[in-house]
Design a binder for these strands. Structure first.
Lengths: 142, 142
DNA sequence: TATTAGATTAGAATTATTCTAATCTATATA
DNA sequence: TATATAGATTAGAATAATTCTAATCTAATA
């Protein structure tokens, strides 16, 4: 975190209080928050913060490769402060998202007819499941 | 297609002209259209068709397991008339989507600590790449 | 041919995200 | 330490995807 801040300063990335609050909130956060989750949290300390600031900051961090934007919930984007490529599982009941750090890269070879049409750049596996809590909820219903 | 229609009739799924038009447009379609793409196409033949009909029909077909809703483009959902589980690659330049029918299921084992938290149901791999056409565009720019 | 459960419609509402243009401020430098 | 300014923040409007509503229509059945 401190090294990160030093790096940003060096890069000329201005460290405003709002940005620092976002960085601090994201640091080590494994809840995969949406922009709104982040906005609400920052708003507690900075009541005048705007969505534009949250989105701009997330975009800047994404461009720097410091965070991951996750496309697994069709409703909205989620953000992950761990930029190392990894995968996710989402609960189909409550949308809770978990990290999968397994390395599947060896297995994810693309067929030739695809490689001749697309130059592969990255991949991300969306796993879908039911979390423990929602499994219980389902049982209660039966 | 004809068997499908017979099946729907049997199921009591009403075959309105709008639904038939959507079914026909989707049948064998590999362009992974968005709801708007479908709406625009149907509107040519049925100028009064509404988005509600398109979304309702897509939802009904999804619930029947007849189409796949694809979460790969963070802007919008795309639909695939091939309901057999498979994967996709999206061009990071133009958002063109291609099908990947490779079977990776053997390799996609989840770590135990995840399986103890989530009951796995399905998975879908998002591949990201640059299509041939966008590769050319990039070269032109340099 | 009449009945009716279910489908369609226009348009409003909702939600996520982006844009705008006025104001503010972190940082560099005098 | 004070000042200048490039870049950041803000409130609120705009946009885009999707869902909702309630009035009207119709495919399928009897």
């Amino acid at each position: 975190m401190k090294e990160l801040i030093a790096k940003y300063k060096e890069q000329g990335f201005r460290l405003t209080p709002q940005r620092l609050a976002i960085l601090e909130y994201m640091d080590g956060n494994t809840s995969h928050p949406s922009a709104e989750d982040i906005y609400k949290h920052i708003k507690a300390a900075y009541p005048t913060v705007s969505f534009a600031t949250v989105y701009n900051t997330l975009q800047a961090l994404k461009d720097k490769g410091e965070i991951l934007e996750i496309t697994i919930d069709p409703q909205k984007k989620h953000y992950d402060p761990n930029p190392k490529p990894h995968h996710h599982i989402i609960c189909m009941g409550c949308n809770k998202i978990g990290d999968i750090f397994e390395d599947y890269s060896e297995a994810l070879r693309l067929p030739h007819h695809i490689v001749s049409e697309f130059k592969p750049v990255a991949n991300h596996i969306n796993f879908y499941g039911i979390c423990k809590y929602c499994q219980k909820k389902q049982k209660r219903r039966n």
